[in-house]
Design a protein around this nucleic acid. Structure first.
Lengths: 365, 365
DNA sequence: ATCGTACAATTGTATAGACAATGAAAATTG
DNA sequence: CAATTTTCATTGTCTATACAATTGTACGAT
């Protein structure tokens, strides 16, 4: 029995609820035809006008599309009728690091799908991310690309849950939240760092300093890749030439580390900078101290940041496909919106090694 | 007569349209009661169900709220078509030049006013700008910050007119369209270039090469400032040390110019680069040719681009307040939306000189 | 094969009438 | 006067019926 004529809740509403459930549970699939009005009259015993009322409401909510002569069909995009063709992009700061490249990747792919891109800067702060999340929901965005903030995982989860509650697909970009069932796109930080370290070892370096922040899992993975590469070559891990901090990017901290590492010239022959911005800081300090890179100390970075301005230094680094990361993020979101994807999408893009001239061979052949 | 029973357009629709017009024209005012169903039955002669259909649609569209026993009332907020708290930012490319800084300035000020920011990249192409304009209008943005494309002025006017037709406030940022009555925010390119050139002259330089594109009025003004400064110091303008092009930024072109200008070392003692990116290209070429800046040739840029990565070179340049330009643009738009401003706002922000080490004195004292 | 025409299925528009539910206001009661 | 009950205008739900408009399909003529 679809409708209970003795129930206090209106019959059109019972029918409407029943139909909605059928659609949501996939009994009536997208693009598929639902029973015609006459058929439902026979099935339910209700008047046609009552059935029309249920249909009209569902059509209004975006569940159904009615076509004269053809019948009534389930809408492609499950429902949410009102969500706009807008993607929210929540990033730390559009001015720094790889963010412009990421934003452009998202925007290009969005434009391809006739989506507009709302830009949100968090400065790595939870409060700002939260503020933007509220505004995005108010503007009923269709989906979100989120680079988690420097706040603890639980805080970032709060942001994510806000979107999930409203059925807004969300994908994490670059930075992940461990042990969470969520779509993400990142790069192979572990393998990349492993490869870079191996490269240094093959060039004869055995005393390799490293500095990075353990705040983000991306950099933690790089540290692990570095450790694994050392272990595989039977080089002991020496904490005295490792400078870790657990905060967001801090220029002063790294300038200090650079001075220390470069001063310990005799102890180390190469430095693995957690990312390019650190590497360039080390460059600057080296220049001031009159230490030559690569002649005195070799240096590798990570990211392959595209300089906004031509750069005189030539850093050997690992190129991360950031633009593609933006594109892929949006592809996942679009397929989610279309309902084509149900399983969790966790994509790890391959980085590639870029050999320039900041490393020299120290082989004792 | 409200409804024409012989018209081919449905009667409920005629009634619906009539009611909507009454509301929009303020005949039925917000919070006010509209006639009851029975009253309209008497007035129009239609069946109650027909009137209900019109009411239901208008309620769905947000024009009306129905209250049992009390009647039907006009909604407060005129309705859905209400423009959103969204600002569109149309820029060439979020990855290059001062664009990230501009976008951030807009976004911060937008967030302050609870506006969201939609980012649009044009790659300086009219078609892309047009595409984005359509999408922005579809999403009913409340206002727009527009950096005109490299296309001819008439083309950019087309974009602007699209927004004006829909009463969407628009402000030009940085690049202007001459002789157009429109809000804009730019910087004092003429005065800035005049100052820079004067500085070089005061340092004893009289043979000053210059290269830039005449495509954008910003750079044209810089050329004029340069010319004026020369004239004021009775230095003749020499076209043979001036390299102009009329296209968008083209790396190859400037690399070629850099080689030519640097090779004519004997003819010139300083170069005025149209903007920092050109200046950095010249740096790179100079380095390759073994020419020292500033010892062999002095160099000034324009913009004071904030490098994404620490930079080893130290360019004397003119700092443009780009972030503030973004902020000011939004302030104008907000005051337009609020209806506080009726006169055209044309703001010219002051740049300031940044003396670094790319210029040496050639005074023959 | 192509074009036009008729047919039929389905939703769209419209009418007439009945009773239910709601809840503010009026009437009644304590 | 306060608490309550009743009233009743108004919207909400529902049935039954009729004809209109739209458009894919099938059929027939060219």
């Amino acid at each position: 029995m679809i409708v209970d004529r003795n129930s206090p809740i209106p019959q059109y509403f019972q029918l409407q609820t029943w139909l909605r459930e059928q659609i949501e549970q996939g009994v009536f699939r997208p693009e598929e035809k639902v029973p015609t009005e006459e058929e439902l009259v026979k099935i339910t015993g209700l008047a046609r006008a009552t059935i029309r009322q249920a249909f009209a409401n569902l059509a209004n909510m975006g569940y159904l599309v009615r076509k004269r002569r053809l019948g009534t069909f389930v809408t492609l995009r499950s429902h949410s009728g009102q969500t706009k063709n807008i993607v929210g992009v929540i990033v730390p700061d559009i001015r720094s690091g790889y963010t412009p490249e990421l934003a452009r990747g998202v925007e290009d792919e969005a434009a391809k799908n006739k989506f507009s891109t709302i830009l949100c800067n968090t400065d790595d702060l939870f409060v700002k991310a939260d503020f933007h999340a509220e505004r995005l929901l108010e503007n009923s965005v269709g989906c979100v690309v989120f680079v988690p903030t420097a706040a603890p995982d639980e805080k970032n989860r709060i942001i994510i849950e806000k979107f999930r509650k409203r059925d807004v697909p969300i994908v994490l970009a670059d930075r992940l939240i461990p042990n969470m069932d969520i779509d993400y796109v990142t790069t192979d930080n572990f393998e990349g760092a492993y490869g870079l370290t191996k490269y240094l070892i093959e060039k004869g370096h055995t005393r390799i300093g490293i500095t990075l922040s353990t705040l983000f899992n991306t950099e933690r993975l790089r540290l692990e890749g570095y450790q694994k590469a050392l272990a595989d070559s039977n080089i002991p891990y020496d904490p005295t030439i490792v400078a870790l901090n657990d905060g967001p990017f801090n220029e002063k901290y790294y300038l200090q580390v650079a001075r220390t590492l470069l001063a310990s010239e005799k102890k180390i022959s190469a430095i693995f900078a957690g990312h390019d911005r650190i590497a360039y800081l080390i460059y600057t300090v080296a220049q001031k101290l009159g230490i030559s890179i690569p002649n005195d100390i070799s240096l590798v970075g990570y990211d392959d940041l595209h300089p906004t301005i031509p750069n005189s230094v030539s850093l050997t680094t690992m190129h991360q496909p950031i633009y593609e990361m933006g594109q892929e993020s949006l592809k996942i979101l679009i397929s989610r919106i279309k309902g084509e994807t149900t399983t969790t999408q966790q994509i790890v893009l391959k980085s590639h090694f870029v050999e320039r001239t900041s490393v020299i061979s120290r082989k004792s052949t």
